[in-house]
Design a protein around this nucleic acid. Structure first.
Lengths: 343, 343
DNA sequence: CAATGCGATGGTAGCGCTGTCAATAATTGT
DNA sequence: ACAATTATTGACAGCGCTACCATCGCATTG
């Protein structure tokens, strides 16, 4: 490789072609469709590229080809560590590809999402990843007419726009409650914050599981649209026991709330799991090392990101998946906070 | 004979210009420098843009102008919530601007960082934000010759490449230890994970504060290069008390470790702060609601992101800051875990 | 041996926009 | 009033790359 390829900064494909003794268009094909070149030319171009340290001008490529190599990613939040894990999966799998990620966050606003999608439409991305299945009608139209592969992630449902990678929040909520019921608990509270569509479906799972056991009671439910924090978990729990003192378990829609509940129990000297079982959602890393360790629903966030980006890239390159909907499932991680006290 | 004629639906700047009754170049100026147009033409172009729903072709713009409106952001980690907060600040302030963010993460590898910077150099970003001041020599050269505003964030030091927004990790570490010493503690352990350059400087602050009190002892220090987790905090703490049973305080280089230490103390029934003071770093949200509440060093991450992107955009547009180095400082948040027990 | 087919390669003509700089119109100073 | 200055505007010429044919060999076929 050349030592200082950048000195001029103006190495164009023409220069590469000249050095390789081919026409510019052949050099161009070296990048887009190397198999179309004879082995001899391919090698000549390859070494010319390396010798000159040639880097393609993406703007020129995009202008001439009417395509970009950008994959748009639309998520609701940058700070929610759930999405951080998804993003890590996406970025990890993008690194070795020729695609780059254009990330935007909507702050949980579907209007903001629509605005972002409009922006994306104008830029003709090669692919698109959006969060969830509750877009505005207009967003839905944009997605359907986007003329590029689209993946909806984080959950699954009927009528995907294109591809879908996620799991059933309803089933996960239902499973969590079934587990708590199996432990003999009867008055199971529900703590919810933010109440985005996925949280709402976890609630539906909770409600139906409770109803199936004839145990549903609106007084067991405390929710808010305020963003989740650990502190909020404690506050909501305080509200809950003020309203319904006889609860013997709490299902929290995420782990931050669950941690807040644990702290609040410690503060009030309510024994966990003795007097109160706690179950969270997502299985963040700290759940396993809390004292007592906290039961949670593990979601495969990193894999969701990986699969989504892989499927999108494959689709861009013409390898459409046989099955457009991928259910990554969940695992109930049963720990001390929801099982009988040992010793 | 080349390609098919431009699709009928396609709106180019030419169409806008025609409708507005001006030359294309005037229409172009409407976007780049509206003040240069007379009010009449500006209004005519404006309504033409709206009527046609014109959206500029960014690739063509980039190709013709030799610039992009992309600001590169290089951070070590996507999942570390410290960077999530910084990113939120960056994205929040970018939304209303015409710039877009190109995000890459290096997984704490300065070689990976160098690779990313090389990529960015080829794409001629409008600006660049990089993490820290410990780049490779080659990276440093790239940054210095980048021909665009560059901001180094998260810490401050001598010889900025261009701009610098952060705080002194050394001072923060020193201040934390000074506080613990003031509480009468003498055997203060140090728990460190990852040990990136900023963590290293927090250690330097710890060491010098301890040495100044003639209390430094290598047996008080336990570190690892493994990534931080809450669980790891417990493990490292176990190592520390095995090695040095008489410690009466622990300074953790971040809050996850501190939480792990708290849990481990609960597990071993070591009273906090009675037998053991705990101090963390970053002041994540949960620190205030832990039981006992945990002392930490608050860092202004969101503001770091905001200031960095604002300064970079300002510099791009010719408004260079009077002072290129911005120290955002830190605040010691003193809580129960490091103060005398109150009944 | 001409006709046919096909893989490899090249020529031409832009993609949609903006930099440069000259031309024109409007404003000012003396 | 007239030159000098300053605001506006437009013509021209690409930016670096690729789409769309056309072409050139060479092998296969009837």
């Amino acid at each position: 490789m050349a030592r200082k390829p950048t000195k001029s900064g103006k190495i164009r494909l023409t220069e590469v072609a000249k050095l390789a003794g081919v026409s510019p268009i052949t050099a161009s094909r070296f990048f887009r469709n190397p198999d179309a070149l004879s082995l001899a030319k391919r090698e000549r171009v390859d070494s010319a590229v390396k010798e000159l340290g040639y880097v393609p001008n993406l703007a020129a490529r995009a202008l001439a080809s009417h395509r970009t190599e950008v994959i748009g990613v639309v998520i609701p939040s940058l700070t929610n560590s759930v999405f951080a894990d998804v993003l890590r999966g996406i970025y990890d799998s993008t690194e070795l590809s020729r695609y780059s990620i254009q990330l935007t966050n909507t702050r949980y606003s579907i209007l903001q999402e629509e605005k972002m999608l409009r922006l994306f439409r104008a830029q003709k991305p090669a692919g698109l990843i959006v969060t969830g299945i509750n877009q505005t009608a207009e967003s839905r139209v944009i997605l359907e007419t986007m003329d590029c592969p689209v993946a909806q992630i984080m959950e699954i449902g009927d009528s995907p726009v294109d591809m879908m990678i996620g799991f059933s929040h309803y089933d996960a909520g239902f499973a969590a409650i079934s587990h708590i019921l199996e432990q003999g608990r009867r008055r199971i509270g529900f703590l919810g914050a933010r109440m985005d569509p996925r949280v709402q479906r976890r609630f539906d799972g909770y409600r139906d599981a409770m109803k199936a056991a004839s145990l549903f009671d609106p007084n067991l439910v405390v929710t808010t649209t305020v963003p989740t924090t650990v502190t909020l978990g404690g506050t909501l729990f305080a509200d809950l026991i003020a309203k319904t003192p006889d609860i013997d378990a709490v299902f929290c829609v995420n782990d931050d709330l669950a941690l807040g509940v644990l702290f609040e129990c410690q503060r009030r000297q309510i024994s966990v799991p003795g007097e109160m079982a706690i179950v969270g959602f997502n299985d963040l890393e700290f759940m396993a090392s809390a004292v007592p360790s906290l039961t949670s629903v593990r979601t495969n966030r990193y894999e969701m990101g990986r699969h989504a980006i892989t499927m999108v890239i494959d689709a861009i390159e013409g390898r459409r998946p046989r099955e457009p909907v991928l259910d990554l499932g969940f695992q109930l991680m049963i720990r001390e906070s929801s099982t009988p006290q040992t010793a």
